[in-house]
Write a protein that binds this DNA or RNA. Structure first.
Ligand SMILES: NC(=O)c1ccc[n+]([C@@H]2O[C@H](COP(=O)([O-])OP(=O)(O)OC[C@H]3O[C@@H](n4cnc5c(N)ncnc54)[C@H](O)[C@@H]3O)[C@@H](O)[C@H]2O)c1
Ligand SMILES: NC(=O)c1ccc[n+]([C@@H]2O[C@H](COP(=O)([O-])OP(=O)(O)OC[C@H]3O[C@@H](n4cnc5c(N)ncnc54)[C@H](O)[C@@H]3O)[C@@H](O)[C@H]2O)c1
Lengths: 209, 209
DNA sequence: GGTATTTTGTGAAAGCTTTCACAAGATCCG
DNA sequence: CGGATCTTGTGAAAGCTTTCACAAAATACC
């Protein structure tokens, strides 16, 4: 798989959307798809689709389009979805339990292997096959379970300490739901899903139209 | 409030983050703050902070910085947080119930005034002061409650129909949690929080480092 | 087989966003 | 009061991303 230069983050996100559209197209029985159709489904333009794909190689045939099955395989390869990822969840609260039960993660190959919480009332609870563990065991358990991705669902005040600890335990990818700007070394991939900011962006849009 | 041209969406998001940093600074007793300090807390650069603020006016004093209290007021005005927003939640499932109890929304002035679900087993349930209502009543109730923002937390297959219906009922802002590309008229502000795409972006990052 | 049609892959152009860099204004302090 | 210091606001430059536009390659059809 070619990885010529650095890939824009926006391209990576669109690849994920293309994959979803392609799977729908496949379910609908389509064997090939043009950049135009893919753009239509993905809410972008055909030039964007072709440019995005061209970062990774050349997957289409002129006058014909892209073979659906093969392109699905290629994008899964590119995104690293060809194996399952070992995930841990820190914070067994409301958002944590919603995420724990989220089948889409499972379906896409993200398997939650451990759940941690600092609340003694929660530690020991059975969560669908797993037991909620004390956050004191976190570092050891992350290493033993060879956890690759950690989801942070603890209060904002606790989030930075959790990041520091999981990074020290060797984790290199973190998805954060706490409304806080977290710091991590360059080598760690950190994404924050900030729902209040999304709401405020809507408020601004309403306020200015 | 000046709104000279069209404001980049990235600027709007940062405004929301600046507001959070400013509130922390205020809680810490600071009366003024420089673009440098604000940048440090917000994870950006001082030039970015100044450029962002300059879209909306001129709030600082040279040699001194920005008065914290006043800048908080100005940003709240800009984002439209000077009043409470009437919000409805469609889909009383796992993510819906997590969001319903999320205090941060309440604290920032987003008040959930109605909850709808299509499942007869859920309709009629008491949810902290509210009753889950049938989605058949949705259009009427949205109009009567003068709902401004709708949060969509239904399965992906149902999401487009819900958007179409709430838009027809006059709603002009939607926050969507379903992993689907939704279509809405230009005049409607629509944001999608797509957690699987976030995870896949992390997978890609791990795969390429 | 040959011509019209389709659709990719990609340089170049256009459009956006971020960063630079500095004049101008305000403070501080002796 | 006056010189040294600080920090904003902002044009201009740099850097990124998207869109354009077209040659090249493949198909479709007669
Ligand atoms: N509820 C939502 O819908 C929602 C939405 C967006 C973001 N968030 C954010 O997600 C985070 C969690 O929210 P919530 O509503 O689930 O809160 P919650 O209080 O229901 O759950 C937080 C959990 O984290 C645990 N915890 C606290 N400190 C910990 C630590 N150091 N290590 C391990 N566990 C720890 C608590 O014991 C608790 O079980 C918050 O930062 C919140 O702002 C929540
Ligand atoms: N669980 C999560 O953590 C999570 C995370 C991210 C995104 N999502 C997305 O959020 C959506 C909801 O997920 P969930 O896990 O809460 O599912 P869920 O099944 O627990 O809840 C969905 C609810 O929507 C209701 N519903 C279905 N069709 C409806 C309609 N037309 N009108 C009104 N209500 C309707 C159902 O009765 C159910 O109560 C899905 O699209 C899912 O992909 C969930």
């Amino acid at each position: 798989m070619l990885r010529p230069k650095s890939i824009p983050e926006s391209t990576v996100r669109r690849m994920s959307l293309y994959l979803r559209s392609l799977q729908e197209a496949q379910d609908a029985g389509m064997a090939s798809i043009s950049s135009d159709e893919l753009a239509e489904r993905g809410g972008t333009t055909s030039a964007q689709v072709r440019k995005d794909l061209s970062f990774f190689g050349s997957f289409g045939k002129r006058g014909f389009g892209y073979p659906v099955r093969e392109l699905i395989g290629a994008i899964r390869d590119i995104l690293g979805l060809d194996h399952t990822w070992r995930v841990a969840l820190v914070g067994a609260g409301r958002i944590g339990s919603a995420l724990f039960g989220y089948e889409d993660f499972q379906r896409r190959g993200f398997h939650i292997r451990a759940v941690f919480d600092s609340d003694p009332a929660k530690v020991g609870q059975a969560w669908g096959g797993l037991t909620v563990r004390s956050d004191a065991e976190m570092e050891t358990a992350l290493r033993e379970g060879e956890i690759e991705i950690v989801i942070i669902a603890v209060p904002a005040e606790a989030a930075q300490r959790v990041v520091d600890r999981v990074v020290r335990a060797g984790v290199r990818a973190v998805l954060n739901f706490a409304p806080a700007r977290l710091r991590a070394p360059e080598s760690v991939a950190l994404r924050t899903v900030d729902m209040s900011t999304e709401m405020e962006s809507l408020a601004f849009a309403l306020n200015n139209s």
